[in-house]
Design a protein around this nucleic acid. Structure first.
Lengths: 166, 166
DNA sequence: GCTGAAATCGCCTAACG
DNA sequence: CGTTAGGCGATTTCAGC
């Protein structure tokens, strides 16, 4: 599943769909410089091969009443694979946890959480997260404001890199 | 811009488009139980009012050759608003920085970064990020593996909440 | 005001070269 | 990959609740 299976048109398609996932196929085809049918075939292939794993509308979290965003750094007592997996499954089941990444270093996981208000989050934090089996420590930081939230990958960096190795 | 301007159908639309942003309007209309024209009007209104800020394809970062994901905790020497803004603007200009959130507590910002390999990231880290004006400290953590990456907002929590307050 | 029905227009998507 | 062409979805118009 290397990048090398993708040509410049494929990468352009990915870049365009990353920016606007609802673009019509004819508009996409126009932008990447081919006609619509082959463009659609490429998109289907990119989806099939896992280069595109889904399309999502980005919703306004605050406008929907989720006033609180929190990053939580979680340390576990046991880092045995079974225990790591168990914690990951817990995270997948908690709706307030939107992202969970396993890290190297002192902290084992970083979680991005949302909540309607602080008290809802506090309840989750004390009754669910810190109370969960195998959780040793949780350090939380409130998001004061968001400064950047770009999707996925910087395709210009990718292109530069490919140009250099060519 | 309160949630109260949205009825149940609007919220269902948002939930569906968050899950599948490329769904056709007729399919969306079928799922939320109204006919296509009013459904399309609602979607347009939701976009117009900022409840939907965009649509994005989720691309496979690893498959595209970005092997490295890193969270960086950044502390600044000055937290004056002008200096905060300046740093945020820097982040927006760095393509390897995909997300930047201002936090409370000891660390001022958390950054989510991607890079093709570790050495590319190290170069960015030492020559750009830590070298940047006003940056006092940077602590980085490599992402070992991703366990959950859900988009946006848990709509079931929202519905529960609204049901309770009704 | 909304919704829904009908009609037009444009896009999607197969088949073929 | 492009062209053609048929069917379906998107989008406007208009009537009804």
């Amino acid at each position: 599943m290397a990048t090398h299976k993708l040509d410049e048109i494929d990468r352009k398609i990915l870049a365009e769909l990353q920016e606007d996932g609802r673009m019509t196929n004819v508009e996409l085809a126009r932008r990447v410089g081919i006609s619509a049918p082959p463009c659609l075939r490429r998109v289907r292939a990119l989806e099939e091969d896992g280069y595109i794993s889904g399309y999502h509308a980005r919703v306004n979290i605050r406008a929907l009443g989720f006033e609180v965003q929190v990053f939580a750094m979680v340390g576990l007592t046991s880092q045995a694979e079974a225990d790591l997996s168990r914690f990951e499954n817990r995270c997948r089941a908690w709706p307030l946890v939107r992202e969970c990444h396993m890290l190297n270093g002192e902290v084992d996981f970083i979680l991005k959480c949302v909540a309607p208000d602080l008290s809802t989050f506090q309840t989750f934090l004390t009754e669910e997260l810190t109370a969960a089996e195998n959780v040793a420590s949780v350090k939380t930081s409130l998001v004061i404001r968001g400064a950047k939230d770009a999707p996925g990958v910087p395709f210009d960096v990718l292109e530069e890199r490919l140009a250099r190795s060519a």
